[in-house]
């Protein structure tokens, strides 16, 4: 059956709500409208306004109310509509969602999911395309998940709803319409497991979320030029799968991290640090990154210059010291 990633998320919510009547879905426009991306389409009709409902337009209140409902027997799933509109909820997420289990010595867990449509590439105007995953991944106590395939969208969201800890579920907006042949329900690898999407022997591309299709396309293009690239899809940023990433890089000896978010102090920087800690003696070249520039996300007029694309990935792979010459970009005195 051909399924879009958005429909797979919708099916995951529907199946989770059918199986467990403590699962609730709420947020802005998630009821009659079915969400601005239609991820909650039909849920209010099937489960009623008691279980899938619209709230006042206030993200801190939405997340804060979900905390209370999770404290008292429910499994809330809340939608933040857009990445940048989740910022009003940040204090709730950082100070309460992430810390409740710890500050109660395990007595109060918060089984809740915060769904965040994120990243760009859909021509959104300002404040609609932020890659905000680093804020959450940097906050201990949260799990951070970002599916790149249709099957993962379904399976990881089911796992997120069933998880005893709070999960920030990052949905790459430009992948909502990605299609695949998948028979639902489907169960893929669990949280904390990265997956090798394409095997290769010359270099490893580590990617997550919206960058995974870019990395795969780059690997195809590289193959046509006789270079074999392996692509690792992280799937969950927290917990992080060091083993799979390190095993791939030890095998290939070269690594490029591909991420749409700004690079500085981002998840991509963390990945590079972890790879060099674990794989230094297997590396033939410094680990490089292809990321968004360190600029506020540029709306559609300029976003094509910002988004990491296939050409930029291939150019970066070319700089992995194949002929033992140092990377001129980072030589002392090169700028």
């Amino acid at each position: 059956m051909t399924v879009t990633l958005g429909k797979a998320l919708n099916a995951a919510l529907r199946d989770a709500m059918r199986e467990d009547d403590t699962v609730l879905m709420f947020g802005e426009d998630v009821g009659a409208l079915g969400g601005v991306f239609r991820v909650t389409d039909g849920l209010a009709a099937e489960f009623g306004d008691d279980r899938c409902f619209d709230t006042p337009l206030a993200e801190s209140g939405i997340v804060g109310m979900a905390v209370g409902m999770a404290m008292n027997g429910f499994r809330p799933v809340v939608e933040m509509q857009f990445d940048a509109f989740a910022y009003p909820a940040f204090e709730q997420i950082a100070s309460h969602v992430a810390k409740m289990r710890n500050r109660t010595r395990g007595a109060v867990g918060l089984p809740m999911v915060i769904r965040v449509p994120y990243a760009g590439g859909i021509g959104g105007v300002e404040h609609h395309s932020d890659s905000s995953e680093a804020y959450y991944a940097h906050t201990p106590g949260l799990k951070v998940v970002t599916p790149a395939t249709v099957a993962d969208a379904y399976s990881l969201l089911r796992e997120a709803v069933a998880d005893p800890d709070p999960v920030v579920f990052m949905e790459a907006k430009k992948l909502y319409w990605a299609k695949d042949e998948v028979a639902l329900p489907v169960t893929t690898e669990p949280f904390g497991t990265a997956v090798v999407r394409r095997e290769g022997s010359d270099a490893t591309l580590v990617a997550y979320g919206p960058a995974v299709p870019v990395a795969l396309e780059a690997a195809s293009a590289a193959a046509a030029e006789g270079r074999s690239l392996e692509v690792v899809d992280l799937r969950t940023l927290v917990p992080f799968d060091d083993e799979t990433v390190a095993a791939s890089v030890r095998k290939t000896g070269r690594c490029v991290v591909v991420a749409e978010a700004a690079g500085f102090a981002g998840v991509s920087a963390e990945i590079v640090a972890r790879v060099q800690e674990r794989c230094f003696h297997s590396l033939w070249a410094p680990v490089l990154r292809v990321t968004g520039w360190d600029v506020p996300y540029p709306p559609p007029v300029l976003e094509k210059y910002h988004l990491p694309g296939v050409d930029r990935v291939l150019d970066t792979v070319d700089r992995l010291q194949w002929d033992d010459a140092p990377d001129p970009r980072f030589l002392a005195g090169s700028r």
Partner: peptide
């Protein structure tokens, strides 16, 4: 907190108020 039905003392101001709403609504 579960046994005493008393939330942890809240240090960030008023951030526990939405939790009370959620617990009561639940």
């Amino acid at each position: 907190p579960m046994a005493t039905r008393t939330a942890p003392q809240c240090t960030p101001l008023a951030t526990h108020a939405p939790h009370a709403v959620g617990v009561a609504h639940a």
